[in-house]
């Protein structure tokens, strides 16, 4: 990957100090065992309980629409700019396009992120684009492109879901025609337990396979879905890991149900936007 030489990227070969702290023995296995025996998560939630959500629109004055979302410790900012003509394109396209850029701030994760997008961020951008492409009425924006920028200020798990939720609000504020509010939820799966709205440590635990002798169940995965609740449509679905059909179905059911709980929050946020704008 080419390195941007105009920026100072810090020493080339450095290792986050947490790696040495991990040697003290806090492994995914241990965390899972503790969680399983206590039957409650490390932050005191039930397995199917979401974290508290804070949602605010209009946080960036220069952008046409913007939103800020907190899900527990996760903090994400999304801004949407005016539709503009698709750059570098000679032929006319009947449908509009979405451009998404998902970025972790350099200080948002335990490990420092570079200023340039890495592969994970590019993948998240394309998942986000996929979710918003079926949300925006692209036929009403012929030959135009809508730019959406998401910046994660603090990553404590489910950052992509938070970004998609916030993007829905920002799009609505920007006045971009959309079919419906978009709601997105993440679930982590480990040993047949669904961790709804996982934190970063839970996300990492669900991405790895625990030692097979102690934990014979091979299921481990992270599933992210985005839904248009009124239309009853899944506009995006992404799963990675290793899981059986039954497990996947139960996760899907849980996720589609949870998407509904986000809708009232978004509605309230948009309602206050309207009432504030018509007040004298």
């Amino acid at each position: 990957m080419p390195i941007d030489h105009k920026r100072i990227n810090g020493p080339e070969e450095s290792v986050p100090y947490e790696l040495f702290a991990r040697l003290s023995g806090i492994t995914s296995e241990k965390t899972f065992e503790e969680t399983q025996s206590a039957n409650i998560r490390t932050d005191g939630r039930k397995f199917d309980e979401q974290r508290k959500i804070f949602l605010k629109n209009g946080v960036v004055s220069q952008a046409k629409g913007s939103a800020y979302m907190e899900m527990g410790q996760t903090k994400v900012m999304v801004s949407v700019f005016d539709p503009r003509e698709i750059p570098n394109r000679s032929d006319y396209s009947l449908k509009g396009e979405i451009y998404c850029e998902f970025k972790f701030a350099p200080f948002s994760c335990p490990k420092r992120r570079l200023h340039q997008q890495d592969n994970e961020e590019k993948q998240y951008s394309s998942i986000m684009k996929k979710a918003l492409e079926s949300t925006v009425c692209l036929h009403e924006l012929p030959n135009f492109q809508v730019d959406i920028y998401a910046l994660v200020l603090h990553n404590d798990g489910s950052a992509l879901s938070a970004a998609i939720n916030a993007a829905g609000v920002a799009l609505a504020e920007a006045g971009v025609p959309i079919y419906d509010i978009v709601a997105s939820v993440t679930v982590g799966v480990q040993q047949g337990i669904n961790f709804l709205d996982p934190t970063l440590s839970e996300e990492q635990m669900c991405q790895t396979q625990l030692t097979t002798e102690k934990f014979p169940n091979p299921n481990h995965a992270v599933v992210i879905i985005s839904k248009l609740p009124m239309q009853q449509q899944l506009c995006q679905f992404h799963q990675t890991g290793y899981m059986s059909l039954d497990q996947l179905k139960s996760a899907l059911e849980l996720l589609t149900k949870t998407c509904e709980t986000i809708v009232p929050l978004v509605q309230k946020c948009l309602l206050s936007l309207v009432t504030n704008s018509i007040k004298p």
């Binding site: 998942i127 996929k130 492409e133 079926s134 692209l138 091979p218 299921n219 995965a221 839904k227 248009l228 239309q231 009853q232 449509q233 899944l234 506009c235 995006q236 679905f237 992404h238 799963q239 990675t240 890991g241 290793y242 899981m243 059986s244 059909l245 996947l248 179905k249 899907l252 059911e253 589609t256």
Partner: peptide, 20 residues
């Protein structure tokens, strides 16, 4: 018989039942 990745592609959306 396990799923290692599932992802939706293209511009359309699907009903949860169709997804199943």
């Amino acid at each position: 018989e396990y799923f290692s990745t599932v992802t939706s592609i293209g511009k359309g959306s699907l009903h949860p039942r169709t997804m199943c």
